[in-house]
Amino acid sequence: MALLELVDVAKSFGSLKAVDGVSFSVEAGEIFGIAGPNGSGKSTLFNVITGIPFGPDRGMIRFDGEEIGGLSGNRIARRGLARTFQRETSFDGLTVFENALMGLSFGATKMPAAQAHEATAEALTFVGIDFASFGRLAGELSVYQRKCLMLATAIAMKPRMLLLDEPASSLTKPEIEASVELIRRIAGRGITILLIEHVLTFLMSLSQHLLVLNQGSVLAMGAPRSVIEDPRVIEAYLGTRRAA
């Protein structure tokens, strides 16, 4: 049975159909990639799945066999579904450790303070943030470190599934390569990953399945190589003249 299943999911803003009848499923343990041009509805799709900041207008969203469409973001998170965002989000006036510790309050598992601190330290170390940085203010971190902090905060929640929204944006080539390895290690923990990214090489190196959105609708879906060779996908990314 699929861990995440969407059927005919839609979200509109006035006359704009940001997500228009999207259906797909993600199996437990896989890395599933989502691509698409700017404005294709990728982040809006993540928003309606996670309930942050809004749910779908219609359609079914089922996580681990349970309907979650329309639930609040915190209730969805406590069922084991966590996410990161396009921009590096953190509470800049709090320390690195305090930011990651807050993730535990949204997790499905409640634990004593000592155990929570241990889990937080483990999550930060896992993503490559050294102990000496635990007491730094989050606002002092580099872009890459802030992305790692977002991941640590999500991992601390002990999720079954993690939604990553453009984790490679604004990173250098060595940082992108490090991100690929980190995502593989997260998947190695048994965490299912749904991944949005503009960089197709990034998606190709990680995804078992790839979906391409265009103007809110599913343009193509399947094995990554066959999807990126689809003439409709080439046209959506490059335009008719360049595709030719």
Rank of each mutant, 00 (worst) to 15 (best):
F91D: 02
G188L: 08
P167R: 11
S43R: 09
L203Y: 02
T95L: 04
F13N: 09
E27C: 06
L219R: 03
R160V: 01
L219E: 04
L16C: 10
L124C: 06
P112E: 05
K147F: 06
K158D: 13
F126H: 09
M161V: 07
I31W: 09
F97N: 07
D20H: 09
A35N: 00
Q215S: 13
D165W: 00
A114C: 02
I196W: 00
N47F: 03
G70M: 01
K110I: 05
A236N: 08
V9G: 10
L124A: 01
Y144M: 07
G59C: 13
A156L: 07
P37I: 03
R83T: 06
A187L: 00
G14L: 08
P224Q: 12
M111L: 14
T240P: 04
A28Y: 08
F131M: 03
K17V: 11
G51S: 07
D230Y: 11
L238I: 05
L194V: 15
L3W: 04
R136L: 13
F63I: 05
R87K: 14
G188P: 09
D57T: 06
M204F: 11
I228W: 04
A121G: 15
I49K: 06
A100P: 08
S90P: 04
M161I: 09
V7C: 05
L163N: 03
R225V: 13
S207M: 07
K173P: 12
P112A: 07
E229L: 13
P112V: 00
V143P: 01
R189Y: 04
A236W: 11
E229K: 10
M111T: 14
R83M: 03
F126Q: 05
R62Q: 07
E175F: 14
L213E: 03
E122G: 14
G36L: 09
V227C: 12
L6Q: 01
S226M: 10
Y237M: 05
G103L: 10
G135I: 07
G93D: 13
K173I: 15
N38D: 07
V233E: 12
G59R: 12
M102H: 12
R136H: 12
G135W: 00
G190A: 01
G239Y: 08
G73Y: 05
